[in-house]
Design a protein around this nucleic acid. Structure first.
Lengths: 372, 372
DNA sequence: CTGAAAGCGCTAACAG
DNA sequence: CTGTTAGCGCTTTCAG
């Protein structure tokens, strides 16, 4: 049953009066391209051009067991793939394009309930998978995936034996951010860590705690308010804190576990007539593209998301190729990417912009505007 | 040459001691599932479960001429797929997921030079294509695509006969934005239209002009500065204007053809110590996710990008299905989407936030800060 | 150097 | 109701 009306190799061959395989050899430039005489070769090329022949990727894929397609699985948060995802994706697309790979995206709402969709996703249609911030990859699930295709993770929550994972220096980044605030004179620094059951959040909490301890500031768990990695969670938690605390017990600085939370906080602060950074300082984490778009621009810990995307794609492509040629070369020195290493740690950097300054001389009084 | 180690239908059949096709019928639930006795059926299911058999999507795709994959082609601007693209993508992913379709992304840097990549992209690996803001689709190129797969466009620059295109009411949106500024008391309103060779930009310019005319304000082409649809272009054009104009000839309001331009402008305005909206008003276009993340939040014309993404995917899926069953039903009333219609126009809406207000009583004097 | 075969994994059409 | 056969479009092997 021929479905589409695009010319096939058979059509070209018929038209040129040669056999399919001659056309195949000519048109894909297989190793022995000298196997066809110049006359037939030219005739085939001419016919192919006239018919606008293009090889069918699926047929080739079935045969080769490879489609030149990398799959990306990412979480949608409240219906949206957020900027964080977006920047990683940019990196992946860049590397994929450079290596003539296509990119396919699967968005999942929750990891637990989507295992079947993910498994289906990798049944032949992708050569490998990149998981972006998977919540919980159950070991059996990870095994099931690996049976079909290799995969790598970015911000994996729990490390999986033999699986390469990209991580940023969460602990160090948090430490830097808090140290910066302390140096500015802050002593009461709140922390919005996002989801504390995520290992990244916990590492950031570690950095926050270590910095306080090293500066002789007592840890106050009323200043640490968990939530989610979203704008609206930032709004909610900030509002809670503003309604709960009196002016005197209110923090002079906020460290947020990502930029979205920071923006949510800032939105609420504005509603309460608190000026950033005069009345209160805010520091984020990630340095997503919109971090420099607020006024004042967000002071934040830069995580090289794009680079992490690039590297994950490079790693994956490497794994796919290695699998393809596993029997041919046992020499692992071919690649510049060390295969044994199971975690790529990326450095972070504090980007000082305009949302953090010295604490106010007098306690400020938050007053809610009636409506914005 | 068997490439992967995943169990195949043949494996299941062998293990269960039945013929391949029995396994096929049982495991995919084809029309006559009663064709197999319960005993064999159970045995097959049991074996399939034990072996963790999953059908190979590529093999099925080759046979059916359909992979359940929709392709999205978008432009990268300065190395980034921007928020605009991102929101449309969210809509596409949503509808794709609802219809059990996968989504594959191809990012192109320039449309002219990427025609081959696009053609290659649609050789079997996608069932249809969504073009996001294609610059110039040459007629022959469009024909070539259509030979392989159906496609739809979003913000197509020139309409292509028979191709469904999603557009927003650019003219009306621009009119609304400018009318709002005029109502606030502004008479000197600058317009940053982005690329004027794009039809969308020109329609926005029409709306701007019409509104000025209807309010008896003379059109001054010194106030209309073309550029690109980017943050950095907003910065550049704004800086140019600030350096060029004296305080007295400086506009009191800015209408920007998208949010990115508006943010770029605002960044420069801040550098020149101009306060938004006290000294100068700014209105954007699009209402991308980060529009509400600046402080003050951006007043902008909302384009339902997500909805446009959803609709484009729905349209495309419809076309793909129609193509699949073209010989079977000639009855076009099946679908709720009218097939003949070649343009979907989406309404826009002015979202009033905090970046526009009345013009200042006295002309303001921009003064550049030494460093930010 | 050329031709004929077989087969990737799956399904749709046939005979039995 | 079962089993066989052919084939989606392409490539690789093996004879000629």
């Amino acid at each position: 049953m021929r479905r589409s009306n695009v010319p096939t190799l058979q059509d070209v061959a018929n038209e040129a009066g040669v056999h399919v395989m001659a056309a195949s050899v000519v048109l894909n430039g297989a190793r022995s391209s000298a196997r066809v005489s110049d006359a037939t070769r030219n005739r085939i090329m001419e016919v192919a051009a006239r018919l606008q022949y293009r090889p069918n990727a699926v047929a080739r894929g079935l045969l080769k067991g490879r489609l030149n397609m990398i799959g990306v699985v990412g979480t949608v948060y409240g219906g949206n793939l957020d900027v964080y995802f977006h920047e990683i994706l940019n990196g992946i697309l860049e590397t994929a394009t450079d290596n003539r790979q296509n990119t396919s995206i699967l968005s999942v709402h929750d990891w637990e309930g989507s295992e079947d969709r993910v498994l289906e996703f990798c049944d032949g249609r992708v050569d490998g998978l990149i998981f972006i911030a998977p919540r919980t990859l159950k070991p059996e699930f990870a095994k099931a995936i690996q049976r079909s295709v290799p995969f790598v993770t970015i911000h994996s929550n729990a490390s999986i034996p033999g699986v390469v994972d990209m991580e940023a220096d969460d602990e160090g980044g948090a430490y830097q951010a808090v140290q910066y605030l302390v140096a500015l004179g802050h002593r009461k620094i709140a922390f919005f860590p996002g989801e504390l059951y995520l290992s990244g959040s916990r590492r950031r909490l570690e950095g926050y705690k270590r910095c306080l301890a090293e500066n002789g500031i007592a840890y106050d768990d009323r200043l640490v308010i968990p939530g989610w990695y979203t704008y609206s969670s930032g709004q909610d938690r900030m509002a809670e804190m503003l309604e709960r605390d009196s002016a005197s017990s209110f923090p002079t600085a906020l460290f947020c576990a990502n930029d979205a939370i920071a923006f949510g906080c800032m939105e609420i602060l504005a509603k309460y007539r608190l000026r950033v950074p005069d009345d209160i300082s805010v520091v984020g984490f990630d340095d997503t593209l919109n971090a420099c778009m607020t006024i004042p621009a967000l002071t934040t810990v830069r995580q090289p998301l794009r680079e992490m995307g690039r590297r994950s794609a490079a790693r994956l492509i490497d794994l796919v190729q290695r699998r393809d040629t596993r029997s041919l070369d046992t020499d692992a020195t071919q690649s510049s990417l060390r295969p044994g290493q199971t975690m790529d740690m990326f450095p972070v950097e504090l980007i000082v912009r305009g949302t953090a300054g010295p604490p106010p001389a007098l306690p400020v009084i938050p007053r809610l505007l009636e409506r914005n």
